[in-house]
Protein backbone atom coordinates (compact mmCIF):
# COMPACT_ATOMS: atom_id res chain seq x y z
CA UNK A 1 0.00 0.00 0.00
CA UNK A 2 1.63 3.28 -1.05
CA UNK A 3 2.24 5.67 1.80
CA UNK A 4 1.23 9.27 1.47
CA UNK A 5 4.20 11.43 2.36
CA UNK A 6 3.24 14.51 4.36
CA UNK A 7 4.52 17.63 2.62
CA UNK A 8 4.85 21.07 4.10
CA UNK A 9 3.15 23.88 2.26
CA UNK A 10 5.37 26.91 2.30
CA UNK A 11 4.45 30.39 1.15
CA UNK A 12 7.91 31.85 1.07
CA UNK A 13 11.28 31.05 -0.42
CA UNK A 14 14.91 32.08 -0.05
CA UNK A 15 15.95 34.96 -2.28
CA UNK A 16 18.31 34.23 -5.14
CA UNK A 17 21.57 36.16 -4.93
CA UNK A 18 24.34 36.37 -7.51
CA UNK A 19 27.91 37.28 -6.61
CA UNK A 20 30.45 38.56 -9.10
CA UNK A 21 30.01 40.16 -12.50
CA UNK A 22 31.45 39.02 -15.83
CA UNK A 23 32.75 41.49 -18.39
CA UNK A 24 29.34 41.48 -20.04
CA UNK A 25 27.89 42.53 -16.70
CA UNK A 26 30.37 45.28 -15.96
CA UNK A 27 32.96 43.29 -14.03
CA UNK A 28 35.94 41.10 -14.81
CA UNK A 29 34.95 37.74 -13.33
CA UNK A 30 35.21 34.60 -15.45
CA UNK A 31 32.07 33.30 -13.79
CA UNK A 32 29.50 34.27 -11.23
CA UNK A 33 28.08 32.32 -8.31
CA UNK A 34 24.36 32.16 -7.63
CA UNK A 35 23.01 30.90 -4.33
CA UNK A 36 19.65 30.73 -2.59
CA UNK A 37 16.30 30.19 -4.19
CA UNK A 38 15.35 27.31 -1.92
CA UNK A 39 11.65 26.60 -1.39
CA UNK A 40 11.89 23.79 1.20
CA UNK A 41 13.94 22.86 4.19
CA UNK A 42 17.38 21.85 2.91
CA UNK A 43 17.57 19.04 0.32
CA UNK A 44 14.04 17.73 0.66
CA UNK A 45 13.68 16.88 -2.99
CA UNK A 46 10.43 15.03 -2.53
CA UNK A 47 9.05 18.52 -2.24
CA UNK A 48 11.17 20.45 -4.75
CA UNK A 49 14.70 20.30 -6.14
CA UNK A 50 17.51 22.42 -4.71
CA UNK A 51 17.74 25.27 -7.22
CA UNK A 52 21.29 26.35 -6.39
CA UNK A 53 23.72 24.22 -4.49
CA UNK A 54 25.66 25.75 -1.61
CA UNK A 55 28.94 27.36 -2.70
CA UNK A 56 32.31 26.87 -1.05
CA UNK A 57 34.57 29.83 -0.42
CA UNK A 58 38.17 29.49 0.69
CA UNK A 59 39.47 32.11 3.09
CA UNK A 60 42.81 33.73 2.37
CA UNK A 61 44.47 36.74 3.97
CA UNK A 62 46.16 39.83 2.61
CA UNK A 63 49.22 39.05 4.73
CA UNK A 64 50.64 35.81 5.95
CA UNK A 65 48.68 35.02 9.12
CA UNK A 66 50.79 34.42 12.20
CA UNK A 67 48.10 32.80 14.31
CA UNK A 68 46.85 30.09 11.96
CA UNK A 69 47.37 26.43 12.73
CA UNK A 70 50.65 24.98 11.47
CA UNK A 71 48.53 22.42 9.62
CA UNK A 72 47.16 25.19 7.44
CA UNK A 73 50.60 26.72 6.97
CA UNK A 74 51.83 23.31 5.86
CA UNK A 75 49.19 22.89 3.21
CA UNK A 76 49.24 26.42 1.75
CA UNK A 77 52.99 26.91 2.12
CA UNK A 78 54.69 29.89 0.51
CA UNK A 79 51.48 31.01 -1.15
CA UNK A 80 50.29 32.36 2.17
CA UNK A 81 52.65 35.30 1.81
CA UNK A 82 51.12 36.36 -1.50
CA UNK A 83 47.34 36.73 -1.80
CA UNK A 84 47.41 36.36 -5.59
CA UNK A 85 49.23 33.05 -5.42
CA UNK A 86 47.13 31.92 -2.51
CA UNK A 87 43.93 32.72 -4.41
CA UNK A 88 45.16 30.68 -7.37
CA UNK A 89 45.89 27.72 -5.15
CA UNK A 90 42.48 28.10 -3.53
CA UNK A 91 40.85 28.00 -6.94
CA UNK A 92 42.80 24.82 -7.75
CA UNK A 93 41.61 23.38 -4.45
CA UNK A 94 38.04 23.68 -5.67
CA UNK A 95 36.83 27.01 -4.32
CA UNK A 96 33.75 28.52 -5.95
CA UNK A 97 34.55 31.86 -4.35
CA UNK A 98 37.47 33.51 -2.60
CA UNK A 99 37.23 35.29 0.73
CA UNK A 100 40.04 37.79 1.13
CA UNK A 101 40.42 38.90 4.73
CA UNK A 102 42.29 42.18 5.13
CA UNK A 103 44.38 42.83 8.24
CA UNK A 104 44.88 45.74 10.63
CA UNK A 105 48.40 46.18 9.28
CA UNK A 106 47.08 47.02 5.81
CA UNK A 107 46.94 50.61 4.66
CA UNK A 108 44.10 51.53 2.29
CA UNK A 109 46.62 51.31 -0.58
CA UNK A 110 47.77 47.86 0.55
CA UNK A 111 44.17 46.72 0.74
CA UNK A 112 43.31 47.92 -2.75
CA UNK A 113 46.47 46.36 -4.09
CA UNK A 114 45.74 43.02 -2.45
CA UNK A 115 42.18 42.98 -3.75
CA UNK A 116 43.29 43.88 -7.27
CA UNK A 117 45.99 41.25 -7.26
CA UNK A 118 43.48 38.59 -6.23
CA UNK A 119 41.03 39.74 -8.91
CA UNK A 120 43.87 39.51 -11.40
CA UNK A 121 44.96 36.04 -10.29
CA UNK A 122 41.61 34.31 -10.41
CA UNK A 123 38.34 34.63 -12.26
CA UNK A 124 36.32 33.62 -9.22
CA UNK A 125 33.92 36.02 -7.51
CA UNK A 126 35.34 37.65 -4.41
CA UNK A 127 34.26 38.39 -0.87
CA UNK A 128 36.33 40.95 1.02
CA UNK A 129 36.36 41.21 4.81
CA UNK A 130 37.78 44.06 6.79
CA UNK A 131 39.98 43.22 9.77
CA UNK A 132 36.98 43.35 12.11
CA UNK A 133 37.57 46.70 13.82
CA UNK A 134 34.93 49.23 12.91
CA UNK A 135 37.16 52.16 12.01
CA UNK A 136 39.72 50.08 10.23
CA UNK A 137 37.04 48.19 8.31
CA UNK A 138 35.63 51.42 6.99
CA UNK A 139 39.05 52.87 6.23
CA UNK A 140 39.93 49.85 4.07
CA UNK A 141 36.63 48.77 2.58
CA UNK A 142 35.61 52.15 1.17
CA UNK A 143 38.63 52.51 -1.14
CA UNK A 144 38.42 48.81 -2.04
CA UNK A 145 34.78 49.22 -2.93
CA UNK A 146 35.48 52.26 -5.08
CA UNK A 147 38.43 50.68 -6.85
CA UNK A 148 36.37 47.64 -7.84
CA UNK A 149 33.13 49.29 -8.87
CA UNK A 150 30.85 46.91 -10.74
CA UNK A 151 32.61 43.66 -9.70
CA UNK A 152 29.73 42.68 -7.43
CA UNK A 153 32.02 41.80 -4.56
CA UNK A 154 30.60 40.94 -1.17
CA UNK A 155 31.85 43.40 1.45
CA UNK A 156 31.86 42.58 5.11
CA UNK A 157 31.40 42.11 7.80
CA UNK A 158 28.46 44.37 8.67
CA UNK A 159 27.40 44.19 12.30
CA UNK A 160 24.89 46.27 14.19
CA UNK A 161 27.61 48.49 15.59
CA UNK A 162 29.14 49.14 12.19
CA UNK A 163 27.23 48.69 8.97
CA UNK A 164 26.30 52.10 7.57
CA UNK A 165 29.56 52.97 5.88
CA UNK A 166 30.00 49.52 4.39
CA UNK A 167 26.42 49.36 3.14
CA UNK A 168 26.64 52.89 1.67
CA UNK A 169 29.80 52.18 -0.27
CA UNK A 170 28.52 48.78 -1.43
CA UNK A 171 25.34 50.44 -2.69
CA UNK A 172 27.22 53.18 -4.48
CA UNK A 173 29.56 50.76 -6.22
CA UNK A 174 27.30 47.87 -7.09
CA UNK A 175 28.57 45.44 -4.47
CA UNK A 176 26.83 43.15 -1.95
CA UNK A 177 27.14 42.97 1.83
CA UNK A 178 27.49 40.28 4.45
CA UNK A 179 25.36 41.02 7.53
CA UNK A 180 26.39 39.27 10.72
CA UNK A 181 24.38 38.99 13.92
CA UNK A 182 25.33 37.02 17.02
CA UNK A 183 23.34 33.75 16.96
CA UNK A 184 19.92 35.22 17.36
CA UNK A 185 16.98 35.16 14.95
CA UNK A 186 15.67 38.57 15.95
CA UNK A 187 19.05 40.26 15.85
CA UNK A 188 19.62 38.85 12.37
CA UNK A 189 16.27 40.15 11.24
CA UNK A 190 16.86 43.51 12.81
CA UNK A 191 20.17 44.03 11.03
CA UNK A 192 18.65 42.93 7.73
CA UNK A 193 15.90 45.49 8.24
CA UNK A 194 18.39 48.27 9.04
CA UNK A 195 20.39 47.46 5.92
CA UNK A 196 17.31 47.20 3.70
CA UNK A 197 16.02 50.47 5.12
CA UNK A 198 19.15 52.20 3.86
CA UNK A 199 17.99 51.24 0.39
CA UNK A 200 20.22 48.23 -0.24
CA UNK A 201 18.45 46.00 -2.79
CA UNK A 202 17.37 42.76 -1.17
CA UNK A 203 19.16 40.61 -3.68
CA UNK A 204 22.46 42.06 -2.53
CA UNK A 205 22.40 40.95 1.09
CA UNK A 206 23.83 37.76 2.54
CA UNK A 207 23.08 37.02 6.16
CA UNK A 208 25.65 35.56 8.49
CA UNK A 209 23.99 34.09 11.57
CA UNK A 210 27.31 33.35 13.37
CA UNK A 211 27.60 29.69 14.19
CA UNK A 212 30.26 28.69 16.65
CA UNK A 213 32.30 25.55 16.10
CA UNK A 214 31.51 21.95 16.85
CA UNK A 215 31.82 21.58 20.61
CA UNK A 216 31.80 25.34 21.13
CA UNK A 217 28.19 26.33 20.85
CA UNK A 218 27.52 25.22 17.30
CA UNK A 219 24.14 23.83 18.29
CA UNK A 220 22.91 27.36 18.94
CA UNK A 221 23.93 28.50 15.49
CA UNK A 222 22.48 25.31 14.02
CA UNK A 223 19.08 25.94 15.53
CA UNK A 224 19.12 29.65 14.74
CA UNK A 225 19.75 28.73 11.11
CA UNK A 226 16.89 26.23 11.06
CA UNK A 227 14.62 28.82 12.60
CA UNK A 228 15.68 31.49 10.11
CA UNK A 229 15.06 29.12 7.24
CA UNK A 230 11.65 28.13 8.60
CA UNK A 231 10.73 31.78 9.11
CA UNK A 232 11.79 32.52 5.53
CA UNK A 233 9.65 29.68 4.19
CA UNK A 234 6.75 30.94 6.25
CA UNK A 235 7.05 34.20 4.36
CA UNK A 236 9.05 36.50 6.63
CA UNK A 237 10.78 38.72 4.05
CA UNK A 238 13.52 39.83 6.40
CA UNK A 239 14.84 36.30 6.88
CA UNK A 240 14.76 35.30 3.22
CA UNK A 241 18.41 36.00 2.53
CA UNK A 242 20.91 33.27 1.68
CA UNK A 243 23.13 32.38 4.62
CA UNK A 244 26.90 32.64 4.62
CA UNK A 245 28.71 30.83 7.44
CA UNK A 246 32.33 30.59 8.51
CA UNK A 247 33.05 27.07 9.77
CA UNK A 248 36.71 27.39 8.75
CA UNK A 249 37.27 30.38 11.00
CA UNK A 250 35.24 28.81 13.82
CA UNK A 251 36.73 25.33 13.70
CA UNK A 252 40.36 26.40 13.34
CA UNK A 253 40.06 28.51 16.51
CA UNK A 254 39.35 25.43 18.58
CA UNK A 255 41.99 23.66 20.51
CA UNK A 256 40.99 20.41 18.83
CA UNK A 257 42.04 21.78 15.45
CA UNK A 258 44.78 24.16 16.43
CA UNK A 259 46.86 22.19 18.86
CA UNK A 260 48.75 18.95 18.26
CA UNK A 261 50.69 18.53 21.48
CA UNK A 262 49.73 18.18 25.11
CA UNK A 263 46.17 17.16 24.27
CA UNK A 264 44.38 13.98 25.39
CA UNK A 265 45.33 10.82 23.55
CA UNK A 266 41.62 10.13 23.10
CA UNK A 267 41.51 13.00 20.62
CA UNK A 268 43.41 10.86 18.12
CA UNK A 269 45.55 11.91 15.17
CA UNK A 270 45.91 15.68 15.02
CA UNK A 271 45.62 16.35 11.33
CA UNK A 272 42.71 14.00 10.74
CA UNK A 273 40.96 15.39 13.81
CA UNK A 274 41.49 19.00 12.75
CA UNK A 275 40.10 18.39 9.29
CA UNK A 276 37.21 16.40 10.77
CA UNK A 277 36.49 19.31 13.08
CA UNK A 278 36.20 21.72 10.19
CA UNK A 279 34.38 19.25 7.94
CA UNK A 280 31.81 18.20 10.52
CA UNK A 281 31.17 21.77 11.64
CA UNK A 282 30.57 22.63 7.99
CA UNK A 283 28.44 19.55 7.38
CA UNK A 284 26.13 20.38 10.27
CA UNK A 285 25.70 23.87 8.84
CA UNK A 286 24.97 22.44 5.40
CA UNK A 287 22.16 20.42 7.02
CA UNK A 288 20.78 23.49 8.72
CA UNK A 289 20.64 25.56 5.56
CA UNK A 290 23.97 27.25 4.77
CA UNK A 291 24.25 28.68 1.25
CA UNK A 292 27.90 29.71 1.33
CA UNK A 293 30.49 27.99 3.53
CA UNK A 294 33.83 29.65 4.11
CA UNK A 295 36.51 27.02 4.73
CA UNK A 296 40.26 26.92 5.23
CA UNK A 297 41.64 23.46 4.57
CA UNK A 298 41.58 21.98 1.03
CA UNK A 299 40.66 18.54 2.34
CA UNK A 300 37.59 19.90 4.11
CA UNK A 301 36.70 21.69 0.89
CA UNK A 302 36.81 18.45 -1.03
CA UNK A 303 34.82 16.52 1.53
CA UNK A 304 32.16 19.17 1.96
CA UNK A 305 31.80 19.53 -1.82
CA UNK A 306 31.41 15.79 -2.25
CA UNK A 307 28.78 15.77 0.45
CA UNK A 308 26.82 18.59 -1.15
CA UNK A 309 26.97 16.76 -4.46
CA UNK A 310 25.40 13.71 -2.82
CA UNK A 311 22.76 15.79 -1.10
CA UNK A 312 21.57 17.42 -4.28
CA UNK A 313 21.63 14.31 -6.47
CA UNK A 314 19.32 12.12 -4.46
Amino acid sequence: MPIEIPKDKWLGSIRTVTIGATSAEGGTRAKTVTVGGGTTMPYLHFKAPTPNKPAIAIEIKSRKPTDWSPLLAEVWGEAMADPAQWAKKAEEAGADLIVLALTVEDSPEDAVKAVKSVLGATGLPLIVWGPGQAEKDNELLVPVSEATKGEKLVLGICEDKNYRTIVATAMANGHLVQARAPMDVNLSKQLNILISDMGMPKDRILMDPTTGALGYGMEYGYSVMERLRLAALQGDAMTQFPMIVTPGFEAWKTKEAKVGEGVPEAWGDWKARAVNWETLTALALVESGADILVLRHPESVKRVKDTIEELITA
Binding site: L214, Y220, E256, G268, A272, N276
Partner: peptide, 23 residues
Amino acid sequence: FAPEMIYPLLVLRENLYTDPQKP
Protein backbone atom coordinates in the same frame (compact mmCIF):
# COMPACT_ATOMS: atom_id res chain seq x y z
CA PHE B 1 37.97 2.64 15.32
CA ALA B 2 39.60 6.06 14.92
CA PRO B 3 39.56 8.39 17.94
CA GLU B 4 40.09 11.39 15.63
CA MET B 5 36.72 10.57 14.08
CA ILE B 6 34.89 9.19 17.10
CA TYR B 7 35.62 12.18 19.32
CA PRO B 8 34.09 14.79 16.98
CA LEU B 9 31.13 12.49 16.33
CA LEU B 10 30.45 12.11 20.04
CA VAL B 11 30.71 15.86 20.51
CA LEU B 12 28.35 16.48 17.59
CA ARG B 13 25.86 14.07 19.09
CA GLU B 14 26.09 15.74 22.48
CA ASN B 15 25.66 19.21 20.96
CA LEU B 16 22.60 18.37 18.89
CA TYR B 17 20.94 16.43 21.70
CA THR B 18 21.44 19.20 24.25
CA ASP B 19 18.10 20.61 25.35
CA PRO B 20 17.90 24.02 23.66
CA GLN B 21 15.69 25.30 26.48
CA LYS B 22 18.34 24.42 29.01
CA PRO B 23 21.70 25.47 27.63
